[in-house]
């Protein structure tokens, strides 16, 4: 009987593949945002708002990850931009390998790639896909305690968007408590308050994304 030291992460192959995807996206000069939230939190509505306001200035690709169907892809294609659908079948998250399969379909340079992950607050957090960063959406009807119940996602997300703020008068949701709870997991998180229904708050989100796109361009010129 022998004992061999391994000391290798279980998800080593996913991490390697994610790094390769990232290299591909960097070479294309694309900012890639991995959007994660529970079902119905407003991922597609959030993306729609960004696309409408940014599509005339930037080349945008949306990647739709769903267990099945292409309802969200159809919504996005109506906006007149490119969409690629990934159906994960049995998996509750996108991973680096599923993402790698779509790379051959990316034949243009995009400034911004928005990836809508499968609706789920747990699993997508663990799997890198080659993104620049994760953006979590928390919608007000879900309650302000969610960051404490699903700490990993909020810990790993650079940006947290509080959506459905138009519903604040009708739901028991405190923005202050939500922010406190998010900061408990992630003191550096950038937090935005929006309503994907009224469009309120999107100016600030877009200013941030613009800044990141421009920073990336400067980087790739050097």
């Amino acid at each position: 009987m022998k004992r061999i030291k391994i000391l290798k992460p279980v998800l080593v192959s996913n991490q390697q593949r994610a790094r390769e995807n990232r290299t591909f996206f960097d070479r294309m000069g694309s900012l890639v945002i991995n959007i994660i939230a529970s079902p119905g939190a407003g991922k597609t509505s959030f993306i729609t708002n960004l696309v409408k306001r940014m599509k005339n200035i930037h080349r945008i690709l949306v990647v739709e990850g769903d267990i099945k169907g292409q309802i969200d892809s159809e919504i996005i294609s109506k906006l007149g931009i490119d969409v690629i659908q990934i159906n994960t079948a049995t998996e509750c998250h996108l991973d680096a390998f599923m993402t790698a399969q779509i790379l051959p379909k990316i034949r243009k340079r995009y400034d911004l790639i928005l990836v809508e992950n499968v609706g789920n607050l747990v699993c997508p957090a663990e799997f890198e896909i080659g993104e620049d960063y994760k953006l979590a959406i928390l919608s007000t009807p879900e309650g302000h305690d969610k960051p404490l119940k699903y700490p990993l996602l909020f810990h790993l997300s650079r940006v947290v968007v509080i959506n459905k703020c138009d519903l604040l008068p009708y739901v028991d949701f405190s923005i202050d408590s939500a922010k406190k709870n998010i900061r408990k997991e992630n003191p550096k998180a950038l937090i935005f308050e929006v309503s994907a229904k009224t469009g309120e708050g999107f100016g600030e989100v877009i200013a941030q994304v613009e800044k990141e796109i421009n920073a990336g361009k400067k980087k790739s010129q050097h």
Partner: peptide
């Protein structure tokens, strides 16, 4: 304080295997 750094807790790796 929230000026903290995470030192451990995110590990997920195979330390060793035993067999013949």
């Amino acid at each position: 304080s929230d000026r903290i750094e995470l030192m451990s807790g995110r590990e997920f790796y195979v330390a060793s295997i035993e067999g013949e």
